[in-house]
Nucleic acid binder design. Structure first.
Lengths: 220, 220
DNA sequence: GGGTCAGGTGACCATGTGGTCATTCTATCT
DNA sequence: AGATAGAATGACCACATGGTCACCTGACCC
């Protein structure tokens, strides 16, 4: 569980991995299910089976505990992105994009709680830190897309008259919508994306990408 | 202020319009600025300059008060949509879409608090009611778009091989992204949409729509 | 065995919450 | 002026919150 490196105080780091994991997982569940505000420290210590005093020795405050949680999920996301980027270098832009989106779905499958925390943070105003950190997460994703786009442009796969920022914004919007629809019942239900089968998902992704291509790909 | 019709108990309805307005506005401000969970009844009562007992005579609970707030904003949104639809009947689909989006920006300018409540509800998991009501709001918007799309298809303005649902999803995603970017600092700042000038906004909208057109318009 | 001390503990604290209700006020009618 | 009804009031309630701290425990060393 290398995404837990440097999480919490030294005392927390000295714990046995299994206990550390139990505490951290309890926090993740609570935050994911309740959101930051409603999440209760009392609940966390109860399910982690530690005393409240201990928790505050591991993480100096509720806020710190939450930011650790968020950082861990950000590390996971970055990892996924890096992997899919490396696995697809050299491929066509649209193929890469397809794989990125599908990898997003896989991330949600594997780390539903982390995904929930990440999304909640990204869009809700209930961020407990200043919005700078949230913007940092966003900028990260946009930078990632931006680089892909520039690369694709230089290879002549995309029209050159488009502004990178605007294309990046558009793609990011669609990407985020797809992922949100997949993990959230009340968004994805009407579209049929929520918990769709792999085949259904692939169709959706292809549709959106075909649509993107006809819009921004280099014709001629 | 006809969006306040049927809001609250009979006692509330008997109040003078100015007092009613003051109470309701206080609630709207608090909910918009703090979100449902953190919003404090005590704050609302303080800024409305009434006693707590009175508020609970006007609205039987915090939750009811909030749903009234939401309903009011939904009424406003519907009104805006109906207007722009009527004003643009007969026009080209993409022109209509442009006007719809611009009208969305105007809505945010005129009713920033309402917009905030509406968006918060639409995307955050902190909805205090069952997700059905949230889904209802979404379905509403999608139905609206869906009808426009069908109409445009029947007039031959759009490719006919596209599924209405998927096109509707895509457009809705972009529309929502644009509006969210306009009203939210930490989303819109990097793109430059946040509080952009009317000209800047128009450029953005045109870009997105041009992009949409090349993607889904009928090239014949 | 006695001393040491890092780490665990949970009773406790101040504060804030949504909600209630006995009382008071006020406007209208006789 | 007195009576009456209905609305306004705020002290009060039970509860939950994040956070603290004086105490206890148990492993280690001499």
């Amino acid at each position: 569980m290398d995404y837990m490196i440097d999480v919490g105080t030294q005392i927390f780091q000295k714990l046995t991995p299994v206990k550390r994991q139990k505490v951290f997982q309890s926090a993740i569940s609570e935050f994911a299910e309740q959101g930051y505000r409603k999440a209760s420290v009392n609940n966390i210590v109860r399910t982690a089976e530690i005393s409240k005093g201990s928790l505050f020795q591991y993480f100096s405050s509720k806020r710190k505990l939450f930011t650790c949680t968020v950082n861990a999920s950000a590390v996971l996301v970055k990892d996924y992105l890096k992997n899919v980027r490396n696995e697809t270098t050299g491929e066509n832009f649209f193929d890469r994009l397809e794989k990125i989106i599908l990898s997003g779905f896989r991330f949600i499958d594997k780390h539903p709680l982390m995904a929930r925390i990440y999304f909640q943070l990204l869009q809700s105003g209930e961020a407990p830190f200043g919005s700078e950190q949230v913007m940092e997460l966003r900028r990260n994703a946009e930078r990632f897309l931006g680089e892909l786009i520039l690369e694709a442009m230089s290879k002549g796969e995309l029209r050159r008259d488009l502004s990178t920022d605007k294309v990046s914004f558009i793609i990011y919007s669609l990407l985020e919508s797809l992922l949100r629809a997949y993990y959230s019942d009340f968004i994805g239900e009407s579209s049929g994306i929520y918990k769709a089968s792999p085949e259904g998902l692939t169709i959706w992704v292809r549709t959106v990408i075909d649509f993107l291509r006809d819009g921004i790909s280099n014709r001629g």
